[in-house]
């Protein structure tokens, strides 16, 4: 039973920016240990949804529950301390600081286990160990994405929200990053992946939500969706 319990649940979550309704009454849920994909075109509301879950963007209506706790109106630092993290799109890192300092900042809520977590992050991303004293802004795009992921892992999260990790990266590095996500999931991390690259996301995930103009257009097991040509045509483009 433990494995099947909800880790994250949103109920009727709505977000508006002025007159624009970015997210409309979205209900999603993620179970312990699941790898869930959130796919949809650019502007479908994926990023807004992730930001609302983390308390960065305030929702107008609806609720977010994490581990059974209502976190809808909590501050981001509180939410992060509960074990939720967001790896945002476009490698958001501290460019003027060293790689190590970035990782130290990631450990804000779990500084006691810093050495242990650091070692763990270095086993996933050996390149970060090599570059640990380098200024983060001088890293390549792929390395910056890895640093962004590594920094999130330093807080030993229970659920990882990751937004468009493939954005602007070479196919080889994208494959590498998806492999690491799969590995993390195998080790027990629950993952919610928002991604435009539907094919890649569906291949990795157990379940998926398809988002269209702020709404969940459909949901199901990733394997079913990837094999169903009708659905693929309707929501994911003909290829």
């Amino acid at each position: 039973m433990e494995k099947k319990s909800n880790i994250l649940k949103t109920e009727g979550l709505s977000i508006t920016y002025g007159p624009i309704k970015a997210v409309k009454k979205v209900n999603i849920e993620i179970k312990q240990g699941e790898f869930v994909a959130l796919i949809g075109a650019n502007g479908a509301g994926k990023t807004s949804l992730l930001k609302a879950i983390l308390g960065i963007q305030r929702p107008d209506k609806g609720r977010v529950q994490f581990l059974g706790i209502d976190i809808t109106r909590q501050s981001t630092d509180k939410i992060v301390s509960l074990g939720l993290c967001l790896i945002p799109e476009g490698h958001v890192i501290f460019t003027s600081m060293t790689v190590l300092e970035n990782l130290q900042l990631g450990a804000y809520h779990d500084y006691d286990n810093f050495e242990k977590n650091l070692e763990r992050v270095f086993t996933y991303f050996p390149i970060l160990q090599e570059r640990s004293s380098q200024i983060a802004g001088t890293l390549s795009g792929g390395e910056q994405q890895m640093l962004s992921m590594g920094r999130a892992l330093m807080s030993k999260p229970k659920l990882i929200l990751i937004d468009e990790p493939s954005l602007g990266l070479a196919p080889k590095i994208v494959t590498e990053i998806f492999n690491i996500l799969l590995e993390l999931n195998k080790e027990g991390y629950s993952i919610l992946l928002a991604e435009q690259n539907a094919k890649k996301a569906l291949e990795c995930s157990h379940r998926c939500y398809v988002m269209q103009t702020g709404e969940i257009a459909m949901t199901g097991f990733s394997g079913d969706i990837i094999d169903n040509p009708k659905i693929r045509q309707a929501y994911l483009g003909s290829n």
């Binding site: 983390l54 960065i56 501050s75 981001t76 630092d77 992060v80 301390s81 993290c85 967001l86 945002p88 958001v92 890192i93 501290f94 460019t95 003027s96 600081m97 300092e101 130290q104 900042l105 990631g106 804000y108 809520h109 500084y111 920094r151 999130a152 807080s155």
Partner: peptide, 25 residues
């Protein structure tokens, strides 16, 4: 110091600072 690093983190990138869980206020 750690506190100084939090200052620099907020100074450099407020969004990233809130993501790592630094209490901004």
């Amino acid at each position: 110091t750690n506190q100084g690093r939090f200052f620099r983190a907020i100074a450099e990138n407020l969004f990233a600072a809130s993501l790592v869980g630094i209490p901004i206020i």
